[in-house]
Design a protein around this nucleic acid. Sequence first.
DNA 1: ACTGCCACCTGCCGGC
DNA 2: TGCCGGCAGGTGGCAG
Length: 274
Amino acid sequence: MPELPEVEGVRHYLDRLLTGRTVTAVTVVRPKIIAHPAPEVFVIRLTGQTFAGVERRAKFLLLRLTDGGTLVLHLRMTGLPLVVPTDAPQKKHTQVILNLDNSTELRYLDQRQFGRFWLLEKNEHDDCTGLAKLGPEPLSRAFGPKKLAAALGGRKCPIKTCLLDQHTVAGIGNIYADEILFAARIKPDRPACALSPAELSRIAREIKQILAAAVAKDCLSISEYDVQHGVEQRDAEKLLVYGRAGEPCVRCGMPLVRTVIGQRSSYYCPHCQH
DNA sequence: ACTGCCACCTGCCGGC
DNA sequence: TGCCGGCAGGTGGCAG
């Protein structure tokens, strides 16, 4: 489901409802959701912990604990953490439950079961999560055209594939990759090594622009991340190309097309993206 | 090291 | 109505 902007919305939601709460009990419905440590150890170590705050790195949620440890969560495609009253009816696909000290519980739902939890100790440096290998955070000041050019190196694969590679830049997913390349007027299948410095600058600028706008919009509609419905809605009207094959391009009016790049659906305007 | 391809899962949708 | 293939916003691992 989520790319960086949606994960940021979830971060805000969890930070508001979890900070200061203590875990009174842990139920692991589906053990494979716990990537590290072993599920039994996970339960023992997490019980009694208090949340200090919730941060985000790329698409990872970092639930900081007051003892210096971190509960890491990646939602992958369909992960959905909800904080609900203890007596709320349990929904299908509930995978992990953390009871909290205020008669609420954090319920982790995940239809496709791709999401994962990791519980890291204060000074645990073993990177079982993959966090250490991530590329720069696209909205940080440290990221810009130079960083992008350096990360792309002379790679021959399509620029879209490179943007989806979390080692290049961290947090872009399939939808925003298409939106970014449309805004930068670059065809998604262009080999990264064939892009000019000016084109790379446009891409770097649009990465920041598109993601920042999406984060801002998500914060405004955070109430949409609704406990009742359990779904956050991406405003599809804001997407200019994704999912719009056959519709007229908002810039030139020519029909948008769908193709497949790196086994992922890709949408672009063959007339004004080069 | 890079690249392509598959696997991991469930559910939904359109076509026959 | 029902079955079947294709598709889904992510990533890790494998082979070449």
